[in-house]
């Protein structure tokens, strides 16, 4: 795989905001916590994502939506250091994300709620959560973080001695989110949290995400469920065939005729 460094094609975020996101003023939010700067991503001969730029600022809930094969997962792999950008760069807290294993991402302070939850099925809810604070720094605050998670999701407290496999899909998703919070992360990334859940549970999970976002934690929410994401997020990026087609404040996109017709079926 080629490893092309920064090739000078980067557009500054100001250009973007003047183009299509009227209400956004990055200047008064300081530097972004996550900055994806016009990256090209792919595997071997295949170019999957080209020229994508995306920022997540402190306290924001940012949605990244798109259909199957639009390149969402590839972007996540690059953020977690599993693949390297062919062009452009990815900065987390101002530092370039290097190549490495997923556990190094946790050490940097990025918590990842993976697709399919990936819990420890034969462990209790509390053991699952406790393992979220495995690293030395979060371990010091384990008891406090646990209380915080139970505050957010009181249902889990009642089931804390039950093995994770015995809980419903929605509750398992809460465990996955709770486990990620135990890391005391600087950024939370969620990959398709609504996947495989009944519509009622999807609403429940989205409310939970909104709740977590209100604690001030920046979140990048990757989803196929465009409607749900637009309802809870501050800003949304829409990806199609590896390119960003629309981005802007979610409220504004909700009102956009084209979006409504193409993604919301209205």
């Amino acid at each position: 795989m080629r490893d092309v460094a920064h090739d000078g094609r980067d557009r500054s975020s100001e250009d973007y905001s003047s183009e299509n996101s009227a209400g956004r003023t990055p200047a008064d939010r300081g530097d972004p916590i996550l900055q994806i700067d016009s990256v090209d991503l792919g595997y071997d001969e295949l170019l999957v994502v080209s020229g994508v730029s995306l920022e997540v600022y402190g306290g924001e809930l940012v949605g990244l939506v798109g259909g199957n094969g639009s390149g969402k997962s590839t972007i996540l792999r690059a953020v977690s250091g599993m693949i390297q950008p062919r062009a452009g760069r990815i900065l987390f807290g101002g530092r370039a994300v290097g190549k490495g294993s997923p556990h190094q991402m946790a050490e940097m302070g990025i918590a990842h709620v993976p697709m399919g939850r990936q819990l420890f099925p034969n462990m209790t809810v509390e053991q699952n959560l406790a393992l979220g604070a495995y690293l030395p720094e979060p371990r010091k605050h384990r008891a406090g973080s646990l209380a915080h998670v139970y505050d957010l999701f009181p249902d889990l407290h009642g089931k804390r001695k039950v093995v994770a496999a015995a809980l419903s899909g929605g509750q398992q998703q809460m465990i996955a989110i709770g486990r990620a919070l135990m890391l005391r992360p600087k950024l939370l990334i969620m990959d398709e949290p609504s996947l495989g859940l009944a519509p009622r549970l999807v609403k429940e999970v989205m409310q939970a995400i909104r709740l977590v976002s209100q604690t001030g934690l920046p979140i990048l929410l990757v989803e196929q469920n465009v409607k749900q994401v637009l309802q809870i997020s501050d800003r949304t990026y829409v990806l199609e065939n590896g390119k960003l087609v629309v981005e802007g404040p979610s409220k504004q996109l909700m009102g956009d005729e084209k979006i409504r017709r193409a993604y919301l079926g209205l």
């Binding site: 556990h103 991402m105 939850r117 990936q118 495995y134 990620a180 135990m182």
Partner: peptide, 13 residues
Amino acid sequence: QNRLGAELVGINT
């Protein structure tokens, strides 16, 4: 029980 899950909480599997 789950290698990916373990990696994501910071365990060097």
